[in-house]
Amino acid sequence: MNFNEFSPMHLAYLKKQRTTKIVVHLLQVAFLLVFLGVWELATHLGWVDGFIFSSPSRVWKTLTDLFSQGDLIKHVWASTWETILGFFIGTVLGMLIAIILWWNDMVKRVFEPYLVVLNSLPKIALGPLIIIWAGTGKAAIVTMAVLISVVITALNMLVGFCQTEPSKILLMRTFKANKAQIFFKLVFPANIPNLLATLKINVGMSWVGTITGEYLVSKEGLGYLIVYGSQVFRLDLVMTCTIVLCLLAGLMYGSVALLEKSVKFDQ
């Protein structure tokens, strides 16, 4: 873009846009700093009990201790790996289900109600069953993460597939396109924005699955640490893990958002 072509008023407009953006970022950082400051101060002045509510300095200490013991990396890695696995398996499986249901109207009509019921079922209720079926290892946790994301993926994608403009399908049919061509040349590309939105949802979903899975069974991972911390009343540990979890989930969401940005096209 050539800025020389822009009128002074246009430049002023752009500058204002930029300023607003910077102000928003500054305020975001400021909010975080104030929040941490008040939290720290409150525990120091005895407004709240630092043992129960922890404090930024205690969290920092716990974090560095965990890191130097090599535990932090181990637990973070365990949870992240389970989540990523659950995320991919859940997304791919959900997508396959959506494709099968889209492909065959009869199958769709038979199975859609089951899918809707499964979707409203709190998957955590299946926890005990999963432990018995998949064992008490990582498999149970990944299964949980998959279960939580697969149904919503299937439903979301199916709705998207079925909402493909009928007249565009008609266009494909005027060229005598078969079902596979209609899917790969029209329905799937038209649903890429929908897929990306689903991926974003699934980041959150698979973290929910992993952490609840780790609550139920596990010997490592952030969910394990949180449960362990609360049982031995080390609330610093609970708080620290929660904050690390926030950062990890944010990071994963951020990478999906970045992916979305790179494939965006003008509708």
Binding site: E165, S167, K168, L170, L171, M172, T174, F175, K176, A177, Q181, K185, L186, P189, A190, I192, F265, D266, Q267
Partner: peptide, 22 residues
């Protein structure tokens, strides 16, 4: 058809080739 129904993710050239591909 009544509307152009060009696929927004395809360039003009790729849109024109759609029928030939199919």
């Amino acid at each position: 058809l009544q509307q152009d129904h060009l696929f927004p993710w395809r360039t003009v050239e790729k849109n024109v080739l759609l029928g030939l591909e199919v």
